[in-house]
């Protein structure tokens, strides 16, 4: 067991974990942050995307011990004081989700994308989401949602970490 402490969605947490525990398992099983989900075992799907020290990562491909001392933001920490993040709002507005399983990862990656590039072209959006798979939407409305959020100036409102 290794002792770790970190900040997750604004709260400081500390636990003894097996070194083999993945960050996504730590979030789900220890912290009950089940909003972050697991869709694959090769780190291709992006469903588990969270922000680690302000940058998007696939939390299935990070050990919990590697996140010791870090700040993590999950889909559950994105809304501030009950107000949805503009990207969350945009996904609903543009029907950017169906079953919703890819959605936490898609939203977290979209926020990262807009943080780095507040007014992306359609092509930049599509490339920026290449690490996230969705089986339901055909991506059309996900792209619309990111465009919609960009038009609302989401990056200023939605800096995380």
């Amino acid at each position: 067991m290794t002792r770790i402490s970190l900040t997750v969605d604004g709260a400081t947490v500390a636990d003894d974990v097996e070194p083999r525990m993945l960050l996504v398992q730590y979030l789900r099983e220890r912290l009950g942050k089940t909003g972050t989900v697991i869709g694959c075992d090769t780190s291709n799907c992006g469903a588990c995307t969270v922000h680690l020290d302000g940058q998007s990562v696939k939390s299935c491909n990070v050990l919990a011990v590697q996140a010791d001392g870090a700040t993590v933001t999950t889909i559950e920490g994105l809304a501030q004081n009950g107000t949805l993040h503009p990207v969350q709002e945009a996904f609903r507005e543009c029907h950017g989700l169906q079953c919703g399983f890819c959605t936490p990862g898609m939203i977290m990656q979209s926020v990262d994308l807009l943080n780095n590039n507040p007014s992306p072209s359609e092509e930049e959006i599509r490339l920026g989401l290449e690490g996230n798979l969705c089986r339901c939407t055909g991506y059309h409305n996900i792209v619309r949602a990111v465009q919609h959020a960009a038009a609302q100036g989401s990056s200023t409102a939605g800096a995380t970490s």
């Binding site: 780190s43 992006g46 680690l52 998007s56 990562v57 696939k58 990070v62 990656q109 920026g128 290449e130």
Partner: peptide
Amino acid sequence: LADAQVRHR
């Protein structure tokens, strides 16, 4: 190379 998340790590 890979995708944005992988490039971060």
